[in-house]
């Protein structure tokens, strides 16, 4: 059963991102949106956690990256940017959604 994990809290303010990363199994996907998009910044102290994944696909919502001034060159490699329609597609493609609120 594949899960789409969605996270919307800053990794430095709440434990949601860390806990999500710790619980995500191979074959699942993680979508960072709202304040969780700060998790994709290159060079941050949590980069080894975020970048260290095999078999888990990582996504970030483009509109939230743009709002926060996170440009492509500042992002950890291998994270795919999706728009709102892509968010819906991901929700439909996975068996269920776990929201790390």
């Amino acid at each position: 059963m594949s899960i789409l994990h969605t996270v919307n809290k800053s990794p430095f303010e709440k434990s949601s991102v860390g806990s999500c990363l710790a619980h995500a199994l191979e074959g699942s996907s993680i979508l960072f949106y709202e304040d969780a998009v700060y998790a994709v910044l290159k060079g941050a102290s949590i980069e080894p956690l975020v970048a260290g994944f095999d078999g888990v696909k990582l996504y970030a919502l483009g509109a939230d990256l743009k709002a926060r001034g996170i440009t492509d060159d500042k992002m950890i490699d291998g994270i795919e940017i999706v728009d709102y329609a892509g968010f819906v597609d991901l929700s439909a493609e996975h068996d269920k959604v776990q929201a790390w609120v």
Binding site: S10, F12, E13, D35, Y38, G62, A63, D64, K66, A67, R68, G69, I70, T71
Partner: peptide, 20 residues
Amino acid sequence: DDGVYQLLKNQDTSDIETKN
């Protein structure tokens, strides 16, 4: 803490439809 994010360059909220 997270307050430093307030001063980042290139913030553009047009796609989340909030005031920039």
